[in-house]
Design a protein around this nucleic acid. Structure first.
Lengths: 232, 232
DNA sequence: ATATTGTGTATTGGATCCAATCCATGCTAG
DNA sequence: CTAGCATGGATTGGATCCAATACACAATAT
């Protein structure tokens, strides 16, 4: 009877960190962390994800780890076989080819529908990411900034389901995109094309923005496939 | 030492059912069954999915049930809140609008790329589904046959990742598509349009097939939205 | 009477334990 | 020496148990 109010008082003190959002579940933390690690290439293709090992890392039991792996598999980021475990899913040349086409199709359509709705704030936000991208000399940032630039513009279309699909497929190829940007002229051409796309958005030319985005993606695909073929 | 060969012999006898594929895991069975039930509308929007109840139904513990629900949520078929449970996810009017646009975009592109690669076998398989669809008087079959007809043609494009996306979004709206087909002239117009699409495929006219598919989907959207608006 | 607070129950999230399966290693038979 | 098989450790899948949370309902105070 007496100790309870004290607990409440204590709880009400550290509200800054928690705000309204309750603490994330263990499985979500594992999911988010692994997803990020895979996207950024910290876990190369084929890396086995052992449940007990991960459970130790996150100080949990294997249950949340399994749920996280299950979700990652549903998203195509890992592939797992019954009783044999899960590995980070790689991607074949044919899949790169197909997925970049899918990107080109979706992203050009989304930017087309975004342009008429783009606000000043969106433009300036995209401008910031665009400049940061061009200026950054840290390859580890390129992937993030590139994605933020594009997605900032896309968000204006207010098509959350399109974005879910785009984000899902971006997750699967982000590692390769990063590699492509690191190529000799990857950054350079990307920067130039971003500038053109942004200008088309400012001019309100939806068709041009769509066409440029399409070329941007298809160009990245060609460059990446070229790179991958020489690699092997 | 003696009994082992007997076991092996017994195992080698019932290979017909198992073939190479090992028995599905419990969580996969729960996932597939719930997915089907949601798609077909057996579990209406908002139906709560209680873990213990489902566990009893499937004669398992709650663990596989939770994994299944987690995967369903990842796919957007259920929405769950921490400590509050999961419910079958409904869909708003705006989402119907957006998702049908997404379908139109993807399906018209896929059929465009499928047409040049469509074989005689594909045509005859699609023919069968098309006729069965037109002839069927059982509303419960319409959804399946409609989807099989379209997907049979799409498969010829050999774009598995495009198909994954298409199937994923079809899963989310299948219930509503079934409702739309059941409308006064839903079946009739769908049948007629299927016939036209199939003919365009036979003629090898990719652009026409794409345009017809686009109209087919957008028409279904208009009809469905009209229906939903009167409903409420 | 109403708002608030405490309490009990239902339900989910996670930990621990057990069963099923795979795989590598070593043994045996030919 | 090699092919095949048995066996044990490693790893995953599932069951059971415990903790944390939400919600309904009752009790109380103003």
């Amino acid at each position: 009877m007496k100790s309870q109010p004290v607990d409440k008082a204590v709880n009400s003190l550290n509200f800054k960190a928690m705000d309204v959002a309750q603490a994330a579940s263990a499985s979500s933390i594992v999911f988010d962390t692994l997803r990020k690690a895979i996207i950024e290439g910290d876990l190369p293709d084929g890396t086995p994800l052992r449940q007990e090992e991960l459970a130790r890392m996150f100080n949990t039991s294997r249950i949340p780890v399994r749920e996280a792996i299950s979700r990652l598999e549903q998203q195509g980021l890992v592939s797992s076989q019954r009783y044999k475990g899960a590995v980070v899913a790689g991607i074949s040349m044919e899949e790169v080819d197909e997925i970049f086409d899918l990107r080109a199709l979706l992203e050009s359509e989304v930017i087309r529908r975004a342009v008429p709705k783009i606000s000043e704030e969106t433009i300036s936000a995209a401008r910031v990411f665009c400049d940061q991208f061009t200026a950054s000399s840290s390859p580890s940032e390129w992937g993030d900034l590139n994605r933020k630039f594009h997605c900032t513009l896309y968000e204006a279309a207010e098509l959350p389901n399109h974005m879910n699909v785009i984000n899902s497929i971006l997750d699967r190829i982000d590692r390769y995109l990063r590699a492509q940007l690191a190529l000799t002229d990857g950054m350079e051409t990307a920067s130039r094309e971003h500038e053109q796309i942004l200008q088309a958005c400012i001019d309100g030319d939806a068709e041009l923005a769509a066409k440029l985005t399409n070329r941007h993606v298809e160009g990245a695909k060609a460059s990446l496939i070229n790179f991958l073929q020489r690699e092997r």
